[in-house]
Write a protein that binds this DNA or RNA. Structure first.
Lengths: 121, 121
DNA sequence: TTCACCTGTCAGTCTCAACTTACACATGAA
DNA sequence: TTCATGTGTAAGTTGAGACTGACAGGTGAA
C-alpha cells in the first residue's frame, strides 16, 4: 500500500479503530453481503450500518455496488477492499513529511498532483 | 509485535488515530521530552496533553518516567515505545479469533493467562 | 517572600460521532 | 391493495471524548 499523508492515515485509522467497524470487516471477510443482510447478522440498525459503511468506504476499506437480484430487487452489496498498512514510527513520520510536501506544492500554486481528493475545482 | 485481541487492537488504533496524538508521536520521535516542554512546542494546554499522553501510554505507545533535573526539579519525561503493527484483514481476523479464545478461557474458569490487564483481582 | 519553573488533578463545557426513529419510495408475491 | 422485502435519507437524541480554566503542591533562585 502506497505511503499516505496524515489526513489519509487518520481517515484510515479512525475508520478501522471502532469496534462495530471491526465486526463489519470480520463479517465481510467471508464474502460480500448486502446492507440489510449485514445489518441482521450484526444486530445493528440499517441507518447506523450505513453510516459505518460510508466511513469505511471513504477510507477505502470497503467497496459498495448496487446490484439487481434475480427477482428484480436492488441490493447494495459491499465487499472488502484489499488493504495492508504497516503502522510504526516511520509510517507516521513519512505521513508528516508528505504533509509538508503537499503544503509546499499548494504554496507554489502547482496543479494538485498528489492530493487525491483535496483538489479544489 | 505480538498478536493482539480486539480490545488491544482497538486501544492501539483509537490511540494513534487522532491528529493531536500523531503530532505528539512525531515530536517525540526526535527524542524524549518532558510534559511542559512538549505542551509548549505543540501549543497545547498541559492538562489536555496529559490526557493524550495517558491514552498513548495505556495503549503502549509511549512511556513516561519521572526524573529529577540538575536543579532538583521533577520533570515528567515521555519517550516513544517501539511499536510496529501490520494492519490488514488477517490482523483483524486474528484479533477476533483471539477474543473467542479468551472467552473460552474465561468460561472454563482458567487463571487469566493471556489477558494482560483484564485480570480481576 | 516573591518569582518562575515544574507536576498532578478536578470540575466544568463543548463538540461531534454514534445511534434511534421515522419517513418516502421502489419491487414482487399473496 | 396489502404485505414483506429492499434502498436511501432526514430529522432528532445521547454520550464520550476533547478541551479549558483553576486549583494545590513542590523546587531553586533573586
Amino acid at each position: 500500500m502506497q505511503a499516505m499523508n496524515s489526513e489519509e492515515l487518520l481517515a484510515f485509522l479512525a475508520a478501522v479503530g471502532h469496534a462495530q467497524r471491526l465486526r463489519i470487516i470480520t463479517e465481510l471477510a467471508t464474502g460480500s453481503l448486502y446492507v440489510s443482510e449485514l445489518a441482521r447478522r450484526l444486530g445493528v440498525s440499517r441507518p447506523l450500518l450505513y453510516m459505518h459503511l460510508e466511513r469505511l468506504e471513504k477510507a477505502g476499506l470497503v467497496i459498495g455496488r448496487l446490484e439487481l437480484s434475480d427477482d428484480g430487487k436492488a441490493l447494495k452489496y459491499f465487499e472488502l477492499a484489499p488493504f495492508d498498512v504497516q503502522l510504526n514510527v516511520d509510517t507516521i513520520l513519512t505521513a508528516a513529511r508528505l504533509d509538508e510536501a503537499d503544503a509546499q506544492q499548494d504554496r507554489s500554486g502547482e496543479a494538485g498532483k498528489h492530493s487525491p481528493k483535496g483538489t479544489p475545482q
